[in-house]
Design a protein around this nucleic acid. Sequence first.
DNA 1: ACCGCACCCTGAGCGC
DNA 2: TGCGCTCAGGGTGCGG
Length: 291
Amino acid sequence: MPELPEVEVTRRRIAPALVGRTIASVRTTPDSYFFITRPTDLRRRLRDRTVLKLDRRGKYLVATLDDGSRLALHLGMTGQLFASGATSVRLLSASARAALAPETQPTFRGDSHTHLVLRFRDGAPDVLFRDVRKFGKVLWLPAGARNPRLDRLGVDALRATGQDLFAATRKRRVAIKNLLLDQAVIAGVGNIYADEALFRAGVRPGRAAGRVTRRECEAIVRELRSVLRRSIATGGSSISDYVAPDGRDGRYQDERRVYARRGEPCRSCRTPIKRITLGQRGTHYCPACQR
DNA sequence: ACCGCACCCTGAGCGC
DNA sequence: TGCGCTCAGGGTGCGG
Protein backbone atom coordinates (compact mmCIF):
# COMPACT_ATOMS: atom_id res chain seq x y z
CA MET A 1 0.00 0.00 0.00
CA PRO A 2 1.90 2.96 1.22
CA GLU A 3 4.81 4.54 -0.53
CA LEU A 4 6.51 7.83 0.25
CA PRO A 5 3.48 10.06 -0.45
CA GLU A 6 1.07 7.96 1.60
CA VAL A 7 3.56 7.75 4.47
CA GLU A 8 4.20 11.49 4.33
CA VAL A 9 0.48 12.33 4.28
CA THR A 10 0.01 9.91 7.17
CA ARG A 11 2.83 11.61 9.08
CA ARG A 12 1.41 15.09 8.62
CA ARG A 13 -2.11 14.13 9.60
CA ILE A 14 -1.33 11.82 12.54
CA ALA A 15 1.29 14.14 14.03
CA PRO A 16 -1.29 16.34 15.84
CA ALA A 17 -2.70 13.24 17.55
CA LEU A 18 0.75 12.13 18.67
CA VAL A 19 3.23 14.94 19.17
CA GLY A 20 3.26 16.49 22.64
CA ARG A 21 1.15 13.71 24.10
CA THR A 22 2.12 11.32 26.85
CA ILE A 23 1.37 7.64 26.40
CA ALA A 24 -0.74 6.21 29.22
CA SER A 25 -1.06 2.65 27.99
CA VAL A 26 -0.30 0.40 25.04
CA ARG A 27 -2.43 -2.44 23.74
CA THR A 28 -1.25 -4.96 21.16
CA THR A 29 -2.23 -8.19 19.49
CA PRO A 30 -0.24 -11.30 20.51
CA ASP A 31 3.41 -11.45 19.56
CA SER A 32 4.10 -12.18 15.90
CA TYR A 33 6.81 -11.34 13.41
CA PHE A 34 4.99 -8.04 12.96
CA PHE A 35 6.66 -6.97 16.22
CA ILE A 36 10.40 -6.53 15.81
CA THR A 37 10.25 -5.40 19.43
CA ARG A 38 8.19 -7.81 21.53
CA PRO A 39 4.85 -6.50 22.76
CA THR A 40 5.86 -6.87 26.43
CA ASP A 41 8.92 -4.71 25.83
CA LEU A 42 6.91 -2.20 23.80
CA ARG A 43 4.42 -1.75 26.61
CA ARG A 44 7.16 -1.21 29.17
CA ARG A 45 9.23 1.16 27.01
CA LEU A 46 6.39 3.32 25.74
CA ARG A 47 4.36 3.83 28.89
CA ASP A 48 4.70 7.35 30.35
CA ARG A 49 6.82 8.54 27.43
CA THR A 50 5.98 11.81 25.68
CA VAL A 51 6.24 12.02 21.90
CA LEU A 52 8.54 14.89 20.92
CA LYS A 53 8.37 14.66 17.12
CA LEU A 54 7.40 12.46 14.22
CA ASP A 55 9.69 12.13 11.23
CA ARG A 56 9.69 10.12 8.04
CA ARG A 57 12.68 8.10 6.80
CA GLY A 58 11.86 6.61 3.42
CA LYS A 59 8.70 4.63 4.12
CA TYR A 60 9.30 4.52 7.89
CA LEU A 61 7.65 6.79 10.42
CA VAL A 62 9.97 7.51 13.35
CA ALA A 63 8.66 8.99 16.59
CA THR A 64 11.24 10.46 18.95
CA LEU A 65 10.33 10.11 22.63
CA ASP A 66 11.31 12.26 25.60
CA ASP A 67 13.98 9.82 26.81
CA GLY A 68 15.71 9.91 23.43
CA SER A 69 14.42 6.50 22.40
CA ARG A 70 12.54 6.08 19.14
CA LEU A 71 9.52 4.19 17.92
CA ALA A 72 9.69 3.23 14.23
CA LEU A 73 6.66 2.08 12.25
CA HIS A 74 6.51 0.65 8.76
CA LEU A 75 3.11 0.32 7.12
CA GLY A 76 4.06 -2.56 4.82
CA MET A 77 1.43 -3.26 2.19
CA THR A 78 -1.81 -2.84 4.10
CA GLY A 79 -0.86 -0.82 7.18
CA GLN A 80 -3.26 1.90 8.31
CA LEU A 81 -2.44 4.43 11.01
CA PHE A 82 -5.29 6.55 12.28
CA ALA A 83 -6.90 8.19 15.26
CA SER A 84 -9.94 6.70 16.92
CA GLY A 85 -12.92 8.56 15.61
CA ALA A 86 -11.76 8.29 12.00
CA THR A 87 -14.37 6.76 9.77
CA SER A 88 -13.75 5.03 6.47
CA VAL A 89 -15.11 1.93 4.83
CA ARG A 90 -11.49 1.09 4.02
CA LEU A 91 -11.08 0.19 7.68
CA LEU A 92 -13.64 -2.58 7.28
CA SER A 93 -13.56 -5.95 5.55
CA ALA A 94 -15.80 -6.43 2.54
CA SER A 95 -18.24 -8.50 4.58
CA ALA A 96 -18.44 -5.83 7.28
CA ARG A 97 -19.01 -3.22 4.59
CA ALA A 98 -21.80 -5.27 3.08
CA ALA A 99 -23.50 -5.52 6.46
CA LEU A 100 -23.58 -1.72 6.78
CA ALA A 101 -26.77 0.15 6.22
CA PRO A 102 -26.39 2.44 3.19
CA GLU A 103 -24.89 5.87 3.86
CA THR A 104 -23.67 4.98 7.35
CA GLN A 105 -20.14 5.94 8.38
CA PRO A 106 -19.29 3.77 11.38
CA THR A 107 -16.71 4.75 13.93
CA PHE A 108 -13.92 2.22 13.92
CA ARG A 109 -13.15 0.68 17.29
CA GLY A 110 -10.44 -1.85 16.58
CA ASP A 111 -10.49 -5.44 15.36
CA SER A 112 -8.21 -8.49 15.22
CA HIS A 113 -6.02 -6.68 12.66
CA THR A 114 -5.43 -3.71 14.94
CA HIS A 115 -1.99 -4.58 16.29
CA LEU A 116 -1.10 -1.47 18.24
CA VAL A 117 -3.25 1.00 20.16
CA LEU A 118 -1.74 3.96 22.01
CA ARG A 119 -3.84 5.61 24.68
CA PHE A 120 -2.90 9.04 26.01
CA ARG A 121 -2.93 10.64 29.42
CA ASP A 122 -4.75 13.77 28.30
CA GLY A 123 -7.69 11.73 27.02
CA ALA A 124 -6.98 12.63 23.38
CA PRO A 125 -8.21 10.10 20.79
CA ASP A 126 -6.27 6.82 20.68
CA VAL A 127 -3.83 6.20 17.85
CA LEU A 128 -4.38 2.84 16.15
CA PHE A 129 -2.16 0.84 13.82
CA ARG A 130 -4.11 -1.70 11.77
CA ASP A 131 -2.52 -4.05 9.24
CA VAL A 132 -4.39 -6.95 7.68
CA ARG A 133 -1.43 -8.67 6.02
CA LYS A 134 1.03 -7.95 8.82
CA PHE A 135 3.83 -6.98 6.46
CA GLY A 136 4.18 -3.84 8.55
CA LYS A 137 6.70 -3.48 11.36
CA VAL A 138 6.91 -1.96 14.82
CA LEU A 139 10.27 -1.46 16.45
CA TRP A 140 11.54 0.44 19.45
CA LEU A 141 15.11 1.75 19.54
CA PRO A 142 16.99 2.83 22.67
CA ALA A 143 18.42 6.35 22.74
CA GLY A 144 21.30 6.62 20.30
CA ALA A 145 20.83 3.09 18.98
CA ARG A 146 21.50 2.36 15.36
CA ASN A 147 19.39 0.00 13.36
CA PRO A 148 20.28 -1.80 10.14
CA ARG A 149 16.79 -1.34 8.69
CA LEU A 150 17.09 2.42 8.97
CA ASP A 151 20.82 2.63 8.34
CA ARG A 152 20.61 0.95 4.98
CA LEU A 153 18.18 3.50 3.53
CA GLY A 154 19.55 5.58 0.70
CA VAL A 155 18.86 9.23 -0.09
CA ASP A 156 15.22 10.23 0.38
CA ALA A 157 13.38 10.27 -2.93
CA LEU A 158 12.28 13.90 -2.47
CA ARG A 159 15.92 14.94 -2.16
CA ALA A 160 17.46 12.57 -4.70
CA THR A 161 19.30 13.86 -7.74
CA GLY A 162 19.80 12.41 -11.19
CA GLN A 163 23.43 11.99 -10.26
CA ASP A 164 22.48 9.80 -7.27
CA LEU A 165 20.60 7.48 -9.58
CA PHE A 166 23.18 7.58 -12.36
CA ALA A 167 25.99 6.66 -9.96
CA ALA A 168 24.00 3.69 -8.66
CA THR A 169 23.20 2.36 -12.12
CA ARG A 170 26.72 1.96 -13.44
CA LYS A 171 27.68 -1.63 -14.25
CA ARG A 172 24.33 -2.85 -12.97
CA ARG A 173 22.42 -5.32 -15.08
CA VAL A 174 19.16 -5.28 -13.10
CA ALA A 175 16.15 -3.58 -14.59
CA ILE A 176 16.05 0.14 -13.88
CA LYS A 177 12.65 -0.38 -12.25
CA ASN A 178 14.15 -2.83 -9.75
CA LEU A 179 16.87 -0.35 -8.91
CA LEU A 180 14.27 2.34 -8.23
CA LEU A 181 12.56 -0.03 -5.80
CA ASP A 182 15.82 -0.68 -3.95
CA GLN A 183 15.47 1.36 -0.75
CA ALA A 184 19.24 1.40 -0.31
CA VAL A 185 19.58 3.45 -3.49
CA ILE A 186 16.65 5.88 -3.21
CA ALA A 187 14.34 5.58 -0.20
CA GLY A 188 10.59 5.88 -0.48
CA VAL A 189 9.86 4.70 -4.01
CA GLY A 190 7.38 1.86 -4.43
CA ASN A 191 5.63 0.14 -7.27
CA ILE A 192 3.14 2.82 -8.28
CA TYR A 193 5.50 5.76 -8.40
CA ALA A 194 8.35 3.81 -10.01
CA ASP A 195 6.03 2.93 -12.90
CA GLU A 196 4.63 6.45 -13.10
CA ALA A 197 8.04 8.14 -13.06
CA LEU A 198 9.44 5.82 -15.73
CA PHE A 199 6.44 6.51 -17.95
CA ARG A 200 6.88 10.25 -17.65
CA ALA A 201 10.59 9.94 -18.31
CA GLY A 202 9.93 7.77 -21.38
CA VAL A 203 12.13 4.93 -20.14
CA ARG A 204 11.11 1.26 -20.28
CA PRO A 205 11.08 -0.33 -16.83
CA GLY A 206 12.90 -3.46 -18.04
CA ARG A 207 15.95 -1.63 -19.43
CA ALA A 208 19.19 -2.75 -17.83
CA ALA A 209 20.11 -0.03 -15.33
CA GLY A 210 23.62 0.23 -16.73
CA ARG A 211 22.24 1.15 -20.13
CA VAL A 212 20.23 4.10 -18.91
CA THR A 213 22.00 7.34 -19.80
CA ARG A 214 22.87 10.16 -17.46
CA ARG A 215 20.32 12.33 -19.19
CA GLU A 216 17.63 9.69 -18.69
CA CYS A 217 18.56 9.32 -15.01
CA GLU A 218 18.11 13.07 -14.63
CA ALA A 219 14.68 12.82 -16.27
CA ILE A 220 13.63 9.84 -14.15
CA VAL A 221 14.49 11.55 -10.87
CA ARG A 222 12.97 14.84 -11.97
CA GLU A 223 9.70 13.10 -12.88
CA LEU A 224 9.84 10.98 -9.74
CA ARG A 225 10.06 14.00 -7.47
CA SER A 226 7.33 15.74 -9.40
CA VAL A 227 4.99 12.75 -9.17
CA LEU A 228 5.70 12.29 -5.44
CA ARG A 229 5.08 15.96 -4.67
CA ARG A 230 1.86 15.95 -6.65
CA SER A 231 0.69 12.79 -4.90
CA ILE A 232 1.37 14.31 -1.47
CA ALA A 233 -0.61 17.39 -2.51
CA THR A 234 -3.59 15.23 -3.50
CA GLY A 235 -3.43 13.09 -0.35
CA GLY A 236 -1.76 9.98 -1.82
CA SER A 237 -3.20 7.06 -3.78
CA SER A 238 -6.24 5.27 -2.34
CA ILE A 239 -6.42 2.19 -4.55
CA SER A 240 -7.42 -0.56 -2.18
CA ASP A 241 -6.50 -0.05 1.48
CA TYR A 242 -4.88 3.31 1.85
CA VAL A 243 -6.78 5.87 3.84
CA ALA A 244 -5.36 8.92 5.59
CA PRO A 245 -5.40 9.07 9.42
CA ASP A 246 -8.47 11.30 9.32
CA GLY A 247 -10.40 8.77 7.23
CA ARG A 248 -10.10 10.69 3.97
CA ASP A 249 -9.17 9.02 0.70
CA GLY A 250 -6.32 10.29 -1.42
CA ARG A 251 -6.96 11.36 -4.99
CA TYR A 252 -3.76 10.60 -6.83
CA GLN A 253 -5.12 7.34 -8.23
CA ASP A 254 -7.21 9.52 -10.56
CA GLU A 255 -4.04 10.99 -12.06
CA ARG A 256 -1.97 7.88 -12.62
CA ARG A 257 -0.97 7.22 -16.22
CA VAL A 258 0.09 3.56 -16.24
CA TYR A 259 -0.14 1.84 -12.87
CA ALA A 260 -2.92 -0.80 -12.89
CA ARG A 261 -4.09 0.39 -16.31
CA ARG A 262 -3.29 -2.79 -18.24
CA GLY A 263 -5.01 -2.81 -21.61
CA GLU A 264 -6.32 0.72 -21.22
CA PRO A 265 -5.22 3.35 -23.75
CA CYS A 266 -2.08 5.35 -23.05
CA ARG A 267 -3.10 8.87 -22.10
CA SER A 268 -0.75 10.38 -24.64
CA CYS A 269 -0.80 7.96 -27.63
CA ARG A 270 -3.75 5.60 -27.06
CA THR A 271 -1.57 2.46 -27.31
CA PRO A 272 -2.81 -0.15 -24.79
CA ILE A 273 -0.76 -0.16 -21.59
CA LYS A 274 1.25 -3.35 -21.12
CA ARG A 275 1.77 -5.25 -17.90
CA ILE A 276 4.81 -7.42 -17.29
CA THR A 277 6.43 -8.86 -14.18
CA LEU A 278 9.79 -7.53 -12.98
CA GLY A 279 11.28 -8.67 -9.71
CA GLN A 280 7.96 -10.32 -8.83
CA ARG A 281 6.17 -7.02 -9.08
CA GLY A 282 3.50 -6.02 -11.56
CA THR A 283 5.02 -3.48 -13.91
CA HIS A 284 3.10 -1.21 -16.26
CA TYR A 285 4.29 0.81 -19.23
CA CYS A 286 3.40 2.16 -22.63
CA PRO A 287 5.23 0.17 -25.33
CA ALA A 288 5.10 3.14 -27.69
CA CYS A 289 6.06 6.03 -25.38
CA GLN A 290 8.76 4.26 -23.38
CA ARG A 291 12.07 3.21 -24.95
C1' DA B 1 28.92 -7.86 -5.24
C1' DC B 2 25.11 -9.04 -7.62
C1' DC B 3 20.87 -11.32 -8.89
C1' DG B 4 16.63 -14.07 -8.80
C1' DC B 5 13.61 -16.26 -6.01
C1' DA B 6 10.95 -18.01 -1.85
C1' DC B 7 8.71 -16.38 1.74
C1' DC B 8 6.15 -13.70 5.48
C1' DC B 9 0.09 -13.04 5.76
C1' DT B 10 -4.79 -12.13 4.70
C1' DG B 11 -8.36 -10.96 1.71
C1' DA B 12 -10.77 -9.68 -2.75
C1' DG B 13 -12.23 -10.95 -7.07
C1' DC B 14 -12.70 -14.04 -10.71
C1' DG B 15 -14.13 -18.35 -13.48
C1' DC B 16 -16.20 -22.60 -12.91
C1' DT C 1 -22.28 -21.57 -2.27
C1' DG C 2 -18.01 -23.06 -2.51
C1' DC C 3 -13.46 -24.18 -4.56
C1' DG C 4 -9.23 -23.01 -6.58
C1' DC C 5 -6.77 -19.74 -8.69
C1' DT C 6 -4.44 -15.00 -9.25
C1' DC C 7 -3.45 -10.71 -7.59
C1' DA C 8 -2.10 -7.06 -4.11
C1' DG C 9 0.98 -0.30 -2.87
C1' DG C 10 6.39 -4.17 1.22
C1' DG C 11 10.86 -6.06 2.67
C1' DT C 12 14.29 -9.81 4.12
C1' DG C 13 17.19 -13.61 3.57
C1' DC C 14 19.02 -17.31 1.05
C1' DG C 15 21.68 -19.83 -2.44
C1' DG C 16 24.03 -19.73 -6.86
